[in-house]
């Protein structure tokens, strides 16, 4: 199993739009990608509801994992989206 740790780049976290972008990228991969926050069971990264329910905030460390052929490439794609600040244009706090 391929595993990778990523820091959530979006300032507010994986809510509405950043979550949607992640889910679309995850759903487009050849293998299922799972995502977890510390201390919890991994969930499908292709489910927006499951991703939102993680409650991951900006700066949190999340773990993504996948099995089988193409797992590394899938994680690469998902990790790149996770690390980006997709909240960049939202109001600052």
């Amino acid at each position: 199993m391929a595993v990778r740790e990523v820091v959530v780049g979006s300032r507010i976290g994986l809510h509405g739009r950043p979550a949607a972008t992640l889910v679309r990228v995850a759903a487009a991969q050849r293998v299922p990608v799972r995502i977890a926050v510390a201390g919890q069971e991994p969930v499908a990264a292709s489910s927006i509801i499951a991703v939102l329910a993680l409650g991951a905030r900006g700066g949190d460390m999340v773990t993504v994992e996948a099995d089988g052929e193409g797992a590394e490439a899938a994680l690469e794609a998902v990790a790149a989206v996770l690390a980006r600040d997709l909240d960049a244009e939202s109001a600052d706090v």
Binding site: G16, A20, S46, S47, I49, A50, A53
Partner: peptide
């Protein structure tokens, strides 16, 4: 448009 597209994604969600 982005907000609506995200809601569309939720309606079709596998967990739901």
């Amino acid at each position: 448009a982005e907000v609506l597209a995200a809601e569309a994604l939720m309606a079709a969600d596998e967990t739901l």
